[in-house]
Design a protein around this nucleic acid. Sequence first.
DNA 1: GATGAATGAGCGTTCATTCAT
DNA 2: GATGAATGAACGCTCATTCAT
Lengths: 191, 191, 191, 191
Amino acid sequence: MLKPDKRDEILRAAIKLIAEYGFHGAPMAMIAVRAGVGAGTIYRYFENKDVLINELYRELEDKIRKYILSGYSTERPIRERFVHLNTKLFRFFIEFPLHFRYLEQFHNSPYGAAYRRDKILGESDEKDVFMRLFEDGLAQQVMKDLPILILFCLSFGPLITSMRDHILGFISLDDIMIERITEACWDGVKR
Amino acid sequence: MLKPDKRDEILRAAIKLIAEYGFHGAPMAMIAVRAGVGAGTIYRYFENKDVLINELYRELEDKIRKYILSGYSTERPIRERFVHLNTKLFRFFIEFPLHFRYLEQFHNSPYGAAYRRDKILGESDEKDVFMRLFEDGLAQQVMKDLPILILFCLSFGPLITSMRDHILGFISLDDIMIERITEACWDGVKR
Amino acid sequence: MLKPDKRDEILRAAIKLIAEYGFHGAPMAMIAVRAGVGAGTIYRYFENKDVLINELYRELEDKIRKYILSGYSTERPIRERFVHLNTKLFRFFIEFPLHFRYLEQFHNSPYGAAYRRDKILGESDEKDVFMRLFEDGLAQQVMKDLPILILFCLSFGPLITSMRDHILGFISLDDIMIERITEACWDGVKR
Amino acid sequence: MLKPDKRDEILRAAIKLIAEYGFHGAPMAMIAVRAGVGAGTIYRYFENKDVLINELYRELEDKIRKYILSGYSTERPIRERFVHLNTKLFRFFIEFPLHFRYLEQFHNSPYGAAYRRDKILGESDEKDVFMRLFEDGLAQQVMKDLPILILFCLSFGPLITSMRDHILGFISLDDIMIERITEACWDGVKR
DNA sequence: GATGAATGAGCGTTCATTCAT
DNA sequence: GATGAATGAACGCTCATTCAT
């Protein structure tokens, strides 16, 4: 039976190397060495490099979802939900900066474009937490009357850019700073 | 003697191909073909692919600076300057979507990190327009009392994320929408 | 204890896959799956792939020998024996086209050359049916005075080439056609 | 400009290595070494290994056609034409045993099956010399009334099998032997 | 100065074989 | 005895770079 341990080691090695050196700067052989497995072993767990990259993304997404959803309730006021999600996202990425880098790599690549296209245009079973938040915000007339995608950009665009600078070491995001950025973003979306 | 025309052709070919296919999806040979020059010729103008990529970035930055600075005056009120820069940036990227894609590729790569590090930490002769704007905004107590880098993120983070969606075709940014996004960002940074 | 059933399953799987996809188009893992055994199990019955390939050939040869020898008697006239062998061979290959394909693959490979060398030049205990037929044909002056190997080629060369075309579906060999080809070959070898 | 010399060297190396070791026993790297070129160079002349293999086959076919057609006239009697083609083929293969081995490898592989299918079923511009010979033979009632493909097998099947044995060193085909085999084949096809 | 044929290191991937279970 | 996960050498192929013309 395929060992989850090994699969995890491969995933961990891949995320680290890809986050650091980019997709084509992280050869399969290097990932294998770092994971402590043979080169061929990776292919027992992932059909090919593309599949590895995509599956890795999906695992990360799941991990994030679980993280930010803990303690989250759609019953709370919009503003509180907004702050919750924003704060949790910041915390997650600060705790796992490699994940952030990986996600950024992914989004800025053909992989990411295709994925995002599927997600936005495709038939999705469950409604996204974020979409839901903005829909509620609009319905309750708490947020500016803008397309949901735009509200999303206003809410999380600064998070993405400031995380970049944090990871590069140009700024340091502590709890206070996170709170203030989140507040500023709220000022941007609130009516 | 090296011909500027040829250099330009190479740069134009590179930007188009890299924006579309990514750094490693755009081989030198392909760039050469598209530029209408021999493969070896590129190396007379650029020491290697890395140099080409970096110089291309610098050219783009210059082009953007010139574009957004036209009609710009540091004598005008902060808010007006803010709107001017934001609007111009949107217009530039909508007019030259390839440039935006290239920039994004660049920022999310070892190239970008190294470059940004040099720029922020290094000794820069001229003060950046944006830095200047935020310094003035702080001095005049018009903007929130936040680090300049954070103000930058709040001001342009949403621009970047919404441009991504615009280029992928998920939203359509017209003048009205640009104005509304810019207003929202202003709400975010203004005191 | 090693089970003959399992050995047979492996052999059956190997012949089918190799006949269809060639030696290097039939990985051991694929053979194992088709045989319903573990990949490592094959190596308990056959030292390695080469051995498997060679033993498979020998099994096939045995099977053919048994098939064509049923009802065969060296007491009958040359011509009748010739027709018997030729016809039986045709029938065998038409019934088991995979066997024919396998044999052809084998003969046209380093395996085949080595094997044939051993057989012709080596010390063989039992005299080959075919050799015996041609020796008798020569002794009785019924066949052309040619080297035995040449008589063999004249007798069975057309069989091989026409079987190829039959299997590929270019011609259809029925009993009448088999008889006529056999007659023609006889015309070729008879004095 | 691509040098025909180099292309020829690659072809020569490929034919030798493939004839000796088979398609998968002759890696591109080995072909490159033997041809005295870099590994990547092969790909400037041939899109990939498959193309190299197919093109090599076509070159060989051309070479054979030219060789056997020299001095050939469709005006001569059937028998003479038959003897001419048969003899020339023998001579060609004896002179170029590697070519024979290569052809056999090719015919016994997916390449060969596909090719033969195209040739027989496809729309061919020029009528094949052999087809033409057998059609004339049938029309003049000189040959047995059999399908053309069968006449072909009767005429050249023995050639193929005896060439195999000649190359392996089991028999030695001199002019006399060639003549006698050809005569025997004629006995097989003639009415 | 310009070329593009030539190069070979390095990539993603396969598969015969091994060995711990 | 049987298994199949693990291995890594070896494959086909790409592409940044060089250099003879």
